[in-house]
Amino acid sequence: MYNSDKVIVGIIIFILFFAMPFWLNFGKAKALPKPELPSDTKECVESREYMRAFHMKMLLDWRDKKVREGQVYYINSQGKFFKMSLQNTCMKCHKSMEKFCDRCHTTISAHPDCWRCHIAPEEVKKWQ
């Protein structure tokens, strides 16, 4: 092999770069945090599978319908009525932002900025 010193440095850099997902975890598997599900109710607005993937779409949809079109209720696939509100519907069942929403969002590095204006349940407690 010609220029083996440089080539070996190159191979090492290449391995370090593309194996980043492996060595940045230092090879140990920690349990990913799990959001705390409400204990007093059994069902969410829609099915659990749907909520996990589409809740941000639903929130945006609610925001548009409520704020821009003046509708008040959302009818889910079972025909149940829900008042469209982030604080007064979602957070009435999911009583914590930190233990529910944020547990997922920090693991996946999503940064919803809703709580800059909307008031999280934690925040409410502080002021009472």
Partner: peptide
């Protein structure tokens, strides 16, 4: 995409 592979996210 490293956010999918690493925990906690750097």
């Amino acid at each position: 995409h490293l956010r999918f592979f690493i925990h906690p996210v750097p």
